[in-house]
Computed example of a mutant assay.
Amino acid sequence: MEKQSATEAILAAKEEKGLTFAQIAEAVGRHPVWTTSALLGQQQMSEKEAAAVAAVLDLPDEVAAQLQRFPTKGSLPETVPTDPLIYRFHEIVQVYGTTLKALIHEEFGDGIMSAIDFEMDIERVPDPKGDRVKVTLNGKFLPYRKW
């Protein structure tokens, strides 16, 4: 079974069972953001985690096996995304990327924020003008080294 077929089977079973990503994450014992990323093919699950997904979604062993394979990171094409939600994140980086870089360098020095030693959280913030989306990106600072 190919990764895309496994992802399609996972999403179909999730919808059929009426489960949320958070509910599946609870069954797996991981954070909803990480679990969702794994279900969409961007993270590698352990045998135990993949078995939990297969059990909660009533999926065959080949889907669980695919969840345990090394992923190829990066799920978007190289062109500018057209999905409005994904495009907004692209736009944020286009507009604020250099600002983020300047402020991180000013605060921490010359380096990067890790996407490997990394956590992300998404939450709803009630607001009288319309609920807001709060995205927290939390990555370890990795300084460039001289050699």
Results as ranks from 00 to 15, higher is better:
residue 12 A to W: 03
residue 13 A to Q: 08
residue 13 A to R: 10
residue 14 K to L: 15
residue 15 E to A: 15
residue 15 E to Y: 04
residue 15 E to W: 03
residue 17 K to E: 05
residue 18 G to T: 05
residue 18 G to L: 09
residue 18 G to Y: 07
residue 18 G to I: 07
residue 20 T to I: 02
residue 22 A to Y: 02
residue 22 A to M: 00
residue 23 Q to K: 12
residue 24 I to G: 03
residue 25 A to D: 01
residue 25 A to E: 01
residue 26 E to A: 10
residue 27 A to L: 01
residue 30 R to P: 00
residue 34 W to Q: 12
residue 35 T to L: 08
residue 36 T to S: 13
residue 37 S to A: 15
residue 39 L to A: 07
residue 40 L to S: 12
residue 41 G to E: 06
residue 41 G to K: 13
residue 43 Q to V: 12
residue 43 Q to F: 11
residue 43 Q to N: 11
residue 44 Q to Y: 04
residue 46 S to G: 15
residue 46 S to W: 11
residue 46 S to M: 11
residue 47 E to D: 13
residue 47 E to V: 14
residue 48 K to H: 11
residue 49 E to V: 07
residue 49 E to A: 09
residue 51 A to K: 11
residue 51 A to W: 00
residue 52 A to R: 04
residue 52 A to K: 03
residue 53 V to N: 09
residue 55 A to K: 14
residue 56 V to M: 03
residue 57 L to D: 02
residue 58 D to V: 08
residue 60 P to K: 06
residue 61 D to C: 00
residue 63 V to Q: 05
residue 63 V to A: 05
residue 67 L to V: 06
residue 68 Q to C: 15
residue 69 R to D: 10
residue 69 R to F: 04
residue 69 R to Y: 04
residue 70 F to A: 15
residue 71 P to L: 09
residue 71 P to N: 13
residue 71 P to F: 13
residue 73 K to V: 06
residue 74 G to S: 05
residue 74 G to K: 03
residue 75 S to L: 14
residue 75 S to V: 10
residue 76 L to K: 04
residue 77 P to Y: 00
residue 78 E to N: 02
residue 80 V to S: 08
residue 82 T to A: 09
residue 89 F to M: 13
residue 91 E to Y: 10
residue 91 E to K: 14
residue 91 E to C: 06
residue 92 I to G: 00
residue 92 I to R: 03
residue 92 I to V: 14
residue 92 I to C: 03
residue 93 V to G: 00
residue 95 V to W: 01
residue 97 G to H: 03
residue 98 T to F: 09
residue 99 T to R: 12
residue 99 T to V: 13
residue 100 L to V: 13
residue 100 L to D: 00
residue 100 L to K: 01
residue 100 L to E: 00
residue 101 K to F: 04
residue 101 K to A: 06
residue 102 A to Y: 07
residue 102 A to F: 05
residue 104 I to K: 02
residue 104 I to T: 08
residue 104 I to G: 01
residue 105 H to F: 09
residue 106 E to A: 15
residue 106 E to G: 13
residue 107 E to V: 04
residue 107 E to Q: 12
residue 107 E to C: 01
residue 109 G to H: 09
residue 109 G to K: 09
residue 110 D to H: 12
residue 111 G to A: 05
residue 111 G to I: 04
residue 112 I to C: 04
residue 112 I to W: 07
residue 114 S to L: 09
residue 114 S to M: 06
residue 116 I to N: 12
residue 118 F to R: 04
residue 119 E to F: 10
residue 120 M to Q: 10
residue 122 I to R: 01
residue 122 I to Y: 08
residue 123 E to V: 06
residue 124 R to E: 14
residue 124 R to D: 13
residue 125 V to M: 09
residue 125 V to K: 15
residue 126 P to F: 12
residue 127 D to S: 15
residue 129 K to F: 06
residue 129 K to S: 15
residue 131 D to K: 07
residue 132 R to W: 09
residue 135 V to C: 02
residue 136 T to G: 02
residue 137 L to P: 00
residue 137 L to G: 00
residue 139 G to I: 05
residue 142 L to I: 10
residue 142 L to G: 01
residue 143 P to R: 13
residue 144 Y to I: 04
residue 144 Y to S: 08
